[in-house]
Design a protein around this nucleic acid. Sequence first.
DNA 1: CTGTTAGCGCTTTCAC
DNA 2: GTGAAAGCGCTAACAG
Lengths: 334, 334
Amino acid sequence: MKKQSAPTMKDVAREAGVALGTVSKVINGIPVGEEYRLKVEEAIKRLNYEVNTYARGLKMQKSNTVTLIIPDALNPFYSSFAHYIENSLYKEGHFMVLCCSDGILEKEVEYLNMASQNQSDGVIALTYNDIGKYVPQNLPLISFDRIYSNNFTPRVASDNFAGGVMAAEKLMECGCRHPAFITFHSPYPGEADKRKDGYLHACSLHNISPIYLSKLSSSNMKEDIADFIKHHRHPDKSLDFDGIFVNTDYNAYLTCRILKDMGYRIPDDVQIIGFDGISKFSISDELFVSSICQPIPELAQTCVNMVLSKDKNMLPSLTLLPVHYKYGGTTKKA
Amino acid sequence: MKKQSAPTMKDVAREAGVALGTVSKVINGIPVGEEYRLKVEEAIKRLNYEVNTYARGLKMQKSNTVTLIIPDALNPFYSSFAHYIENSLYKEGHFMVLCCSDGILEKEVEYLNMASQNQSDGVIALTYNDIGKYVPQNLPLISFDRIYSNNFTPRVASDNFAGGVMAAEKLMECGCRHPAFITFHSPYPGEADKRKDGYLHACSLHNISPIYLSKLSSSNMKEDIADFIKHHRHPDKSLDFDGIFVNTDYNAYLTCRILKDMGYRIPDDVQIIGFDGISKFSISDELFVSSICQPIPELAQTCVNMVLSKDKNMLPSLTLLPVHYKYGGTTKKA
DNA sequence: CTGTTAGCGCTTTCAC
DNA sequence: GTGAAAGCGCTAACAG
C-alpha cells in the first residue's frame, strides 16, 4: 500500500539523498551548497512536498494566522472590514480566522481563548463588549474603535470627531440653517461617540445648538425616530430642522424612509448625512445616503500592520484615520 | 523569572501530582479514577491550562478548522454565506479560515494548498474557476454551485431550476403577458445556469417564448441592459415586455435603475423579479427587488454537515435546496 | 557548510 | 486502573 499521508521533510531528505537539516535549511532560505539546494528543490517538486505548518507552529510558537472578531458578517460595514483585513493579511503571508460573536461576551471570550491556544499570531477585535479583562497574556490584540478597561490595547479608529465637524459644515454649506442630530449608540464607550462631539462643536462655532435624539441602540429605533420627528413637527407640517446628521448610514436610511413616508422630500425639505459610507450591494459605488465615509481599506491595513508589528511596546495607543464626505442623493448638490 | 509561555500538560501533571498520560486522559474524556480526575481538573483550573491545538493537530492530523474560499466578502451574498458557514461551524466546535480569492485561479489554488498543509479538516469553495485538477489529495472539498472537472466534488446549491419556474409563474400571476429574461453568467458551468432553463420551461408551458439577453458577466452590463431595452422599445415608448426575470438581485437592481431613468414605472409598466434575496444593509428585511430567495443559512448548514461528515464516500454528489419568492416592491401585489 | 540530535506539547500504545 | 515512553514533523543548536 502506498504511503497515504503527505510527504514529510524526511521523505524529501531521503529522495534528495541529503540530511534532514539540509532540507530544513533550504526551505527556510538558510545558505546551503548550490548543488545540495538544487537536489532538495527537485525532490520537493517531485514529491509535491509542503511544510506541515502544525509541526512548524508547534516548534516556532507561531501560526501565520490572525483572528478577527466581529459581531457578524451580515452588516456590510463589518463584512467589508473583514474583507480588507483578509486582503492585507494575505499580502503579509498570513491567514484570517474569522469569528462572528453576535455581540455576545461569552463568545468573544471563547474566541479569544481559542486564538490563544491556537497560537494565533494576534487578534483584531471589533466588539460590543468590554473584553479588557479577558485578554489572554501574550496575545497581541488590536481594537477597532472600542476602548477596553485594561487601558492597554492599542486602538485604531476613524477620526470621528473630524467626521462630525465635516457633517455639520457640509450641511450648512448645502444651505441648512437648522441642523439636527440623531444617534443610537452602544452602552460602551468608543471613538464613534465623538461623531456627536464634533458635530456639536462645529455647530456651536456657528452659534447653533441643534436639537437632537440620543439613545442606546435598540430594536425600536424606527419608532424612536418617528417620535422624534413628530415631536418637532408643527401643525402646518413644517419642521424644526432642515437637515439631520445621523450617526450611521443605516440609521440615516431609516430616517430617510420615515421622513419620506410622512410626505417630506429628501433632500428638498430635509437633507440627511449618515456615517460609514456603505454602498448598495457593497460593490456598486452608489451610497444609500450622503455620508461621511470611513476609510475601511486603510483602517484594515493599519490594524494588520499593528497586530503583526515586531515591537508591540512601541505601538501608538490610538491611531485615527481621516474620513471623507461623499454625495449619496440625500443632500443638495453644491 | 516566571515561566513566560502558557502552561503545558506537563505542568498540569506536576501540579496535580499525577502522570502526564493521566492528564491527557482526563482531557480527552477517557475514564480515569475519580480522585485522579478531580486532582487534574483542579490543577487545570488553577493553572488556567488550555491544550495546545498545534501539538494536538500535529499528533492527530486534524485541526478543527475549515477553510472557506469565496471571491470576496464585499458582495452581500458571499459575506452572508460566510456568516452562516461560520455560525454552523462554531456549533460543531470548528473554526473558519476565510479566504477571499478575488476570483483569481492562482489565489484559489494557493488557498487550497494552504488548507492542505495547515491540516484544514476540509474546504468549502465558492469559486469562479474550475479548481478541479488542483485539489490536494485527501482534502475534503465541498463546492457551492460550481461543478468541477474532477467530477468528484460534492455540490450544494439552491434549486435554481425550480426558482426559474417560480419566477415565471409569479410574473404571470401578477399579470405579465410578455415576460423577458436577462442573465449575465460566468464562463464556467454551474447550477445557477438552470435559472434560465426553469424560466424558459415554465414559459413554454404557457406557450410563450420570452425575449432575452444572455451574456457573460462583464464590466459593462449596464450598457448591455440599456441596449437590450432600447432594442425592444417602440417609437411610442411601449415595450416588447411587461416583466423581466433577471438572474441576480444586483443585475435586477441595475435593470430597475435603467428603466426608471428611461421614465418607466416599476412595477406599473414593468415588473421585475431578481434572484438571491439580498436585503438592504443585509440586516433589514427590505429587499432591493422582488426576488427568488436562496436559503443561505440552510445552504451553509448543509455544506458544513457535508464537509465534516465522517464517511465522505457516502455523500450525495448534488444537493439542491428549495428557494422561495419574496416581495420586494418591484412586482404588483396579488 | 553539512549532518546529527534534542526537543516543541500532545496522544497513545504498552507494560505494570 | 496508572505511568513511562515513543513518536507526530519540524527547527536550531552543535559537532564534525
